[in-house]
Amino acid sequence: MIEITFLGRGGQGAFTSSRILGAAVSLYENKYALSFPSFGPERRGAPVFAYTKIDNKPIRDRSQSELSDYFVILDDSLYTDKLLTKLKPNGKIILNTSQNIESENIIGFNANNAAEQFLGAPISNTAMLAVLVANTKIVSRENLLSAIDYDMPQRLAVKNKTLVENIFEAIEGVKI
């Protein structure tokens, strides 16, 4: 089972990313997924987690992931070294940051810039999802785009797909 934890602030769309990823694998690939937010009241600005579990067989364990294969962090103010201890062996942190990160566990990407360019606003959630997928191939590029179409209203979907495609172009070939 692959477990991905998205971390953002309320309103940044962490759960939307988690949901799109779940839809991509379970509707367009022959896999199973659960996507869920950290339970409780949502408050704008407060740190929020969202989880996606992916497997080749139905997932019966509904509990929150204790260890993750990947952390996708939408806001670098939420990064702490403690997160490294919650990674599975060979796990990675995908971090939205304007700084150059050199670490074997952390992949840095300036998603705000990309989002600004293609969406006209620094809404980094789909950009970061694209960074995750481009680096890990946990779902195919086509199926990710289909899931964006499935989840988002048409106008938003079009813009987000352009954003995602461009990130793929930029990252293609990057190995982890």
Partner: peptide
């Protein structure tokens, strides 16, 4: 079950 089922997405 609240949240675990009501708020969890699946196909």
């Amino acid at each position: 079950d609240g949240f675990v089922l009501t708020h969890t997405f699946e196909a």
